[in-house]
Amino acid sequence: MKHDIQLTVNGIPRNLTVTADDTLLRVLREELHLTGAKKGCGEGECGACTIIMNGEAIRACLVLAVEANGADILTIEGITPPNGITRVQQAFIEADAVQCGFCTPGFVMALEAELRRNPRATAADLRNALGGHLCRCTGYEAILQVTETLATSATRPKNTKKRA
């Protein structure tokens, strides 16, 4: 059975026809060609397909496309400010927290969602946000360094920049 859905993806309104059993992940990847979200396990265990739906991090493999009717969707392709990258992405680069990169969009989106909801997230909050994310090659040390960096920069008040 076909369903017509309307949703906003990375700020762009989309009208799509999907089948009842289509997952949001398949539609994002194969219809809209937003391949940042990855299909890892396909059963919600690994976190590689994490995106932000209506402000909350979710597993795109566990959401039907029809369930996203009317939703505001943000994928890793849509988080970057013009002419730049986000604080989370910068922290990943600085910590060298990427090896093969397959899991990275999921980790980035989980941290992005947490920081957007709670700009003063502690390192513990950020680690908690990563509780359901698997990485097979970095060994997590560098990724946990990212949470430390982000927590430090999140809790530092903006007006205390050192003056020369």
């Binding site: 976190g47 991090a57 989980a110």
Partner: peptide, 9 residues
Amino acid sequence: MGCHEIRNR
């Protein structure tokens, strides 16, 4: 229960 993304759903 579950993890962040699972608890959100």
